Amino acid sequence: MTPLGTVESVAILRARTGLGDLLCGVPGLRALRARLPHAHITLITYAEMAPVVERMRTYVDELLPFPGWPGIPERPVDEQALPAYLADARARRFDLALQAYGANPAANEATAALGARRTGGFFITGTIEPDLAVHLPYPEHRHEIDRHLDLMAHLGAPPAGRALEFPLTPEDEASAAAVKPDGPYALVHPGATSPSRRWPAERFARVADELARRGLQVGITGVPSEAELVAEVRGHMRAPSLDLCGRTSLGGFAALLRDAELIVSNDTGAAHLAAAVDTPSVTLFLAGDPVRWAHPRPHAVVRVQVECNPCRHLVCPIDHRCAQRLEVAHVLAAVDAL
Rank of each mutant, 00 (worst) to 15 (best):
L242P: 01
G269E: 04
P137N: 01
L229D: 00
D61H: 09
T221Q: 02
W199I: 08
N309I: 12
L132M: 12
A239W: 04
D278A: 15
I12G: 07
D131I: 07
V223I: 02
P37K: 01
L286N: 00
L187A: 06
H40W: 12
M49T: 15
P317E: 07
L216K: 00
A201W: 01
L22R: 01
R213F: 06
L36A: 01
G20D: 02
A208R: 03
E74V: 08
L23M: 02
V218S: 00
H272Y: 09
P105R: 04
Y185R: 04
K180R: 15
G71T: 14
G252N: 10
A107M: 04
I12N: 05
H236W: 14
R118F: 08
A227R: 14
V7R: 08
T125L: 08
V301R: 05
E74A: 14
N104Q: 06
L32S: 06
P158E: 02
S249T: 15
V53S: 04
H320S: 05
L164A: 00
D131N: 07
R203Q: 04
P280V: 12
V223F: 02
G156M: 07
I124A: 09
E232K: 14
I128N: 11
V10P: 06
N108M: 07
A11K: 06
L332I: 15
D131P: 07
A113S: 13
V277I: 02
A271M: 09
M56C: 04
E228M: 06
R303W: 14
E232N: 07
A201F: 00
M1K: 10
